[in-house]
Design a protein around this nucleic acid. Structure first.
Lengths: 121, 121
DNA sequence: GATAGTGTACTATAGGTGTATTACGGCCAA
DNA sequence: TTGGCCGTAATACACCTATAGTACACTATC
């Protein structure tokens, strides 16, 4: 996995895992790869993976069974809520950013529509 | 100025200045506040400001007159180009992010439209 | 020339991040 | 019980970021 500089890797791992979970690639109640496996797979140190998992554990999106592994929460309500929140945060960031460039709400929609058209080529 | 953790301050300063320039709050050819002034204004160390300015200097968006100050470039073509690039980068990030959440292009437009409606309340 | 304001450079220090390594304790199946 | 996975913890090291402080060089102005 490639990591951007300027953003801590453990945060990028969190993002990665959140996306895996939200898109259903990692399913509720299912075991996720072990810290050592993830460390190898992401070419990162075990400690770095662990920091990400610890936080996600704290956030309730994962739970840990010592000696067994980490599992995706079965709380589908929380999962849905998390997804909505993440999407909303993206919208927030995006609109705020565009506004700070002096782009009005109407222009944002226009730009995005054009962009999506361009992208499809 | 409030800074987000997890992103280097000097990068946030760059973003801030880019936005000031792009939105015309800092005009082409005009002197920008001195490093010491900015440092106080942004409650940050001089060195941190300087790193941001150095990079922007290198990028051509600013030019330095030693002993006088930093000035916004008069190359309006570059300014326009920069603005387009920054906006495009935002669009890129946004769409990519939404896609990674399993949101299709059509859904993105829908979500954004709804979001903007909500926001206006 | 003196002064004030500008950018620039250097050192030292502190904290966060990431790595490498070692070690310990829990779980499970052979 | 043993061996092999698990998560967890602690340590030491290196790097980047940010701060603080000091000093120097350049410019304009009086």
């Amino acid at each position: 996995m490639e990591f951007k500089d300027n953003i801590p890797i453990y945060l990028q791992i969190k993002q990665y895992l959140y996306r895996q979970i939200i898109t259903g690639k990692l399913k509720p109640g299912k075991k996720i790869p072990s810290v050592r496996e993830l460390a190898v797979q992401l070419t990162v140190n075990v400690n770095t993976v662990q920091r990400a998992l610890q936080q996600m554990n704290f956030e309730g999106i994962l739970y840990t069974k010592r000696g067994e592994g980490n599992f995706v929460t079965e709380d589908t309500t929380l999962l849905e809520k998390t997804k909505r929140e993440l999407i909303n945060a993206e919208l927030d960031k995006f609109v705020q950013s565009m506004n700070s460039f002096g782009v009005s709400d109407e222009q944002i929609l226009k730009s995005l529509t054009e962009y999506l058209k361009e992208e499809r080529k």
